[in-house]
Design a protein around this nucleic acid. Sequence first.
DNA 1: TTCGTCATGTAATGGGTTACATGATTAC
DNA 2: GTAATCATGTAACCCATTACATGACGAA
Lengths: 207, 207
Amino acid sequence: MLELAVLGLLKERAMHGYELRKQLTQRLGFFWTVSFGSLYPTLRKLERRGWVEKAKPAPTTGRRKQVYRITAAGEREFMALLEEGVASGEEDKFPLRFVFFRYLRPELRIRALERRKAYLQERLEEGHRTLTKARHGRADTYTLSLMRHGVDVTQRDIEWLDELIAAERGWVGEQPPADGPAADAPPPRTAPTAEQAEPSDEITTTS
Amino acid sequence: MLELAVLGLLKERAMHGYELRKQLTQRLGFFWTVSFGSLYPTLRKLERRGWVEKAKPAPTTGRRKQVYRITAAGEREFMALLEEGVASGEEDKFPLRFVFFRYLRPELRIRALERRKAYLQERLEEGHRTLTKARHGRADTYTLSLMRHGVDVTQRDIEWLDELIAAERGWVGEQPPADGPAADAPPPRTAPTAEQAEPSDEITTTS
DNA sequence: TTCGTCATGTAATGGGTTACATGATTAC
DNA sequence: GTAATCATGTAACCCATTACATGACGAA
């Protein structure tokens, strides 16, 4: 989990731990937050394995900013982790993988999205089934409400995935699956390529 | 986490481990699933502490169903855990606590719901802020999409809480906060009381 | 008789957290 | 000069998971 995240961010540009966490919180804050207590050890574990390295030689005065950059081996490891995650479909970490989707080949991307959708649909059906059962056998209000809300949110998730899949396939203004009125603008017109290098201030200006 | 869940279910009626897990998955499946590897050890930990006890003396042949029931001490512990959770607001476990809301006094319930709402609103604003920043500084399509979706789902969550709070307060068909068209039926008309005892087949018939 | 589900358990491990400690740098 | 934020780190622990093993019971 953390390893993929760290490698993925460092692939964009060199960073130090504190900044890494900030970026992570910004991008995945809705699903995840890391603590320093796991971030720093991870960083050094990655260094020991040769997947990242210090960018600046040594801080001399005190223990100042440790800027890390990803290595060639690290890049390979990142892609391996990412694709392996897609293949084995660890459903909980989906959002994390998603943030790095631009590094995947388009077909893998679609496969991942569709797999995710299938998974959510299964849960949705299961949810519907138990909800039906729960209605006649009286379950308490709160449990019922939670289940309904769960169904609701899951449906939302599926719609989101539908938009993503459609966009990925290229039909931009074409007819959606013939269900309800589709939501707002489908995002990517052309498949985005991994623009790398250039220490730009992605999302927020830091340092 | 697990302790609260197990105690809460056993408070309803006596059950064995396997069944416990089934119930848990049905009610909280959207947010959570437990593995047996943690369930059984927990069960025996609870037994050692005197919070649950075996209902049937001993299975004699082989190691057959171990039916557990909650003890008086267990009931006290359950309420303590639940109320402590509400007080300290461990936000991740909210759904779990929610399933047992009927055991809380109405005022505590409202407080919990409002606290949760405030928390989500904070995250929502934070999300909006970073989204705005992210739009001009170019973040990739996928990250942006994820953030938008996060905002979306969080808004949904807040609406849900609004309905719950309104229902809790008793205004059933009265005007909603004057925002948009409210969603479908607000659930509880009267505050549900903890109907206890009676080993009914809550949600699904088992055994 | 074999397959699926019911049912309970253990050992090794994992992936993170909290709490704590330290100190530099910036802004007021 | 002091408070807030930046920045790094460690130790103890926690809560759960995976993988594995065992075996009963019912249905085909």
